[in-house]
C-alpha cells in the first residue's frame, strides 16, 4: 500500500492493487459503510448540551456569533494549534533566504517590466482593493454573524493571487517582512494568551470587559497570517509547476 506512487499524467489511471483486490476492497468498504450507517441509525443523538452552554455563556465571550465564540474563546486553544499547523506548512514551503541583501527588499514589488493589458490593469485597480475591503468586512462581521479570520484571510489571499497571476507584481518570500507577516498570527495569539494568564490567572482566559477587543486583535493578526500563508502556498507551488517548463524551452 502507498508504495507505487505516481505523478505523471500518463499514469493517471494506474491502480495500486490487482483487479481482484480492488473488487474485494470495494466490497469490504461497502459492507463497512452499511454497518456504520446501521450503527448511526440505531444509536440516538445526544441532546445539544453544548449548544445550550454556549448560548448561556455567549454574553461573557466578547462576541455575538456563537461559532466565533467557540473558535476564539471557548475552544481558542484548538484555533491556536490550527494556526501552528498552517505555520508548519508555510515554513516547509518558504524559500531559503538568499545571500544578497534580502532584508532591504520589499515584500511585494511591482518592478517587473511586463506591461499589463490596460483592461486587466483597470480591473485589478478595482478588484484588489475591493477584495481587501470584503476581507475586512468579513473579519469585522465575524463577531456578529457568519464570517471570521479564515474566511477573511482566504478572500484577501485571493486578491494576492489575482495580483501575482496578472504578472506585474511579485511577492518576495525570503524577505524579513514576509517572515514577520507569516508568523504574526501565532505570535500575537501566544502573546495575548500569556498576557491573559497574567491578567486573569488563567491562560487564554480573556478579561470579560476587554474580550471583544482582544479577540479582534487576535483575529486581525490571524487574518494577516492566514492570507499570507495561503498566498505563499499558491505562488510557491505555481513557481514549482512552471519551473521545469521554462527549463525545457
Amino acid at each position: 500500500m502507498f508504495t507505487k506512487l505516481e505523478f505523471r499524467k500518463r499514469e493517471a489511471n494506474r491502480r495500486e492493487l490487482p483487479p481482484f483486490a480492488v473488487y474485494a476492497l470495494g466490497f469490504v468498504v461497502i459492507v463497512l459503510s452499511v454497518a456504520l450507517m446501521f450503527s448511526v441509525v440505531v444509536s440516538g443523538k445526544a441532546a445539544p448540551k453544548l449548544a445550550g452552554l454556549a448560548a448561556e455563556k455567549l454574553e461573557a465571550s466578547g462576541v455575538e456569533n456563537p461559532v466565533t465564540a467557540v473558535l476564539l474563546n471557548f475552544r481558542s486553544y484548538d484555533t491556536l494549534l490550527e494556526i501552528a499547523v498552517l505555520l508548519i506548512v508555510a515554513i516547509a514551503v518558504l524559500p531559503a533566504r538568499s545571500s544578497n541583501a534580502a532584508g532591504v527588499a520589499h515584500f511585494c514589488s511591482a518592478d517587473k517590466q511586463d506591461v499589463l493589458n490596460p483592461v486587466l490593469a483597470a480591473l485589478l485597480r478595482w478588484l484588489v482593493p475591493l477584495a481587501i475591503l470584503v476581507g475586512g468586512y468579513l473579519l469585522w462581521t465575524g463577531a456578529y454573524s457568519p464570517g471570521g479570520a479564515f474566511q477573511a484571510g482566504a478572500v484577501i489571499a485571493g486578491a494576492g493571487v489575482a495580483l501575482s497571476l496578472a504578472g506585474r507584481h511579485e511577492f518576495l518570500w525570503h524577505t524579513t517582512a514576509a517572515r514577520i507577516v507569516i508568523n504574526l498570527g501565532l505570535f500575537v495569539f501566544i502573546a495575548v494568551a500569556l498576557s491573559n494568564a497574567l491578567l486573569t490567572g488563567t491562560t487564554l482566559q480573556y478579561p470579560v470587559d476587554y474580550a471583544g477587543m482582544l479577540i479582534l486583535v487576535v483575529e486581525i493578526a490571524a487574518t494577516v497570517s492566514i492570507a499570507a500563508i495561503l498566498l505563499l502556498l499558491f505562488t510557491e507551488l505555481k513557481a514549482m509547476v512552471d519551473a521545469p517548463r521554462e527549463g525545457r524551452q
Partner: peptide
Amino acid sequence: DPVPHAMVLTGIVVAVA
C-alpha cells in the same frame, strides 16, 4: 450547536495545510 461548526472550520484549515 456551534461546536461542530467550529470543528469543521478547523478541519478545513488543517485539510488545506
